[in-house]
Design a protein around this nucleic acid. Structure first.
Lengths: 295, 295
DNA sequence: AACTAGGTTCCGGAATATGGAACTCCCTCC
DNA sequence: GGAGGGAGTTCCATATTCCGGAACCTAGTT
């Protein structure tokens, strides 16, 4: 009487799997039974099946981690393209609403670079699992991160953004970059900041203040700070964590995206970025009715 | 009569899921029914359940891709730590066999950096999915990739490797780097190559020849090319694809790892790296007997 | 040594998943 | 324009498969 279809077992297994992959901490058997409201025996059977298929992995303490299939997927190198695929409908929607150039950007480069950078930063630090040795990298070269555009929807106007896919720009003067900085998706660049235009923010103090504003209002603006005549707004994308994994921007000529239009445009950008975050980060929309403990 | 346990539905769903996540190409419904030997109705029901739980995603052509849960996991930033966790038992084993310093390394830095680097490289290029615009990055800075050690097992001797976790070294003079270069896990560095020791390979031609050797015999050696007195061998780790995602190395003082011992040590290194690759890359060990088409 | 917590195995019962057939939709070919 | 066919979903009776309580096992604790 619970699942509208005939897939109770899979619904339950998926629920367990989502719990395991969802949390950053490994989860114990008991926590899982409680969280999903299943009988011990059922949980045990399901978890053993998931483990057999490498969907979850059990450490020496008996706690559950995402399985080899996930690790393998993450390292396979297609996750970037898939993020684009998942995001595209959202970007399209924003493009229709605004008619302007839409971009999806991620942190990249720097020592370790983008995703990898966060991996390394987090990896050795929290390597608690079984890893030997502590953290302190005697790392050498420290180059700044950038923000790279990985997807784009073109403006419907004749004057608009050219093709920026693949292009990397500095963090401190782009809307995408400011968002990533403000929401923990990128590391603060080192001074001096390159002055791309007379309006570019060039001091750490000024940038820090700007990032505070970005955090407060939930979006970033770059007003002819990257290129004269270019105005853009951007909002953060999360994937269930506390740090932004990407950012969505709307870019336009300064003549079209005037100060009075920025709030409304930014609101749309934030809404779309939030929707994308929800898709990536919210637990699966289980339609289960969990009232099944009793007979 | 098939599954030794009572988890037929989950076994089948996991089989489907593995098929989808396994291949780099999206898979069609019909291919899945055929590959798994299931009835159309069963396949349909199971896939709808998986889709509902964001474990698979269906594109506009009806083909199946890894779902949001996977994309989200990959971008969550914990995949690095999990690779270490999965690899650790293998590294430990190699450490016991050799008593020497064992490292796991991945490509990092450079424009785009490590994993992210491969993502970007593959991303825009194959962005076929629905992405607008082609590839050509007008990218600016081009810094070389390095190899970063992300896990280590310490030598049991008093003289051995110090803690290298977090440290990044050049590709051209380390065993790990040579392996990544030889098996497509890193991009060729730009000349001139830094001469860390008198033996360091410093020309592109010489390095290319060396990489050919590495490919042929399946492992790399660095013989006092990175630091005087340091000898190391390394072997590639794959995750189901054609390019190495990481490398495993054994490092020792030149006095202990003498030329006559290198072949046996390298063989052990290769064996362990292969075992790790199998864990990451092989489809789950389904014990299913698929003979269930007929009644 | 007895006790508790955490987890697995066993078993009868019935709810649940199964697969053939019917059905819908869309595309192609004549 | 109509017939044909491929792709996928829905329906339904059936019995297979999964469920959950209880027994059982293994470690760690007092």
């Amino acid at each position: 009487m619970s699942s509208p279809n005939g897939t109770q077992a899979i619904d339950r297994a998926a629920m367990l799997l989502a719990q395991v992959v969802h949390g950053s901490e490994p989860v114990s058997f008991t926590e899982l039974t409680a969280a999903c409201g299943l009988a011990k025996s059922t949980t045990s059977r399901l978890l053993m099946a998931l483990e057999r298929h490498q969907l979850v992995r059990r450490d020496s303490d008996g706690r559950f981690w995402p399985g080899e299939l996930f690790v393998r997927y993450a390292w396979r190198g297609t996750a970037g393209a898939h993020l684009v695929a998942v995001a595209q409908p959202f970007l399209d929607q924003l493009g229709e609403q605004t008619s302007e150039t839409i971009n999806l950007g991620v942190a990249t480069g720097g020592t370790g670079g983008g995703q990898a950078g966060r991996d390394r930063a987090a990896g050795p630090a929290n390597a608690g699992v079984t890893a030997r040795a502590g953290g302190g990298g005697a790392g050498s070269d420290v180059s700044d991160m950038m923000v790279r555009q990985i997807a784009q929807v073109n403006s419907r106007y004749l004057i608009g953004g050219t093709n920026w896919v693949g292009l990397a720009v500095p963090l401190h003067c782009s809307a995408l970059g400011k968002v990533l900085l403000a929401f923990g998706g990128a590391a603060m660049p080192s001074e001096p900041f390159e002055a791309r235009t007379p309006r570019t923010i060039t001091t750490r103090a000024a940038l820090a203040a700007e990032l505070g504003t970005v955090r407060d209002r939930g979006f970033a603006v770059t007003d002819e700070e990257l290129e004269p005549g270019l105005v853009a707004v951007a909002a953060p994308v999360f994937a269930g964590g506390l740090t932004a994994i990407a950012a969505v921007s709307v870019s336009a000529p300064a003549s079209r995206l005037t100060a009075d239009l920025i709030p409304a445009t930014a609101a749309r950008c934030v809404a779309v970025a939030s929707a994308l975050s929800a898709t990536l980060g919210s637990p699966p929309g289980l339609d289960r009715s969990r009232g099944s403990t009793a007979a």
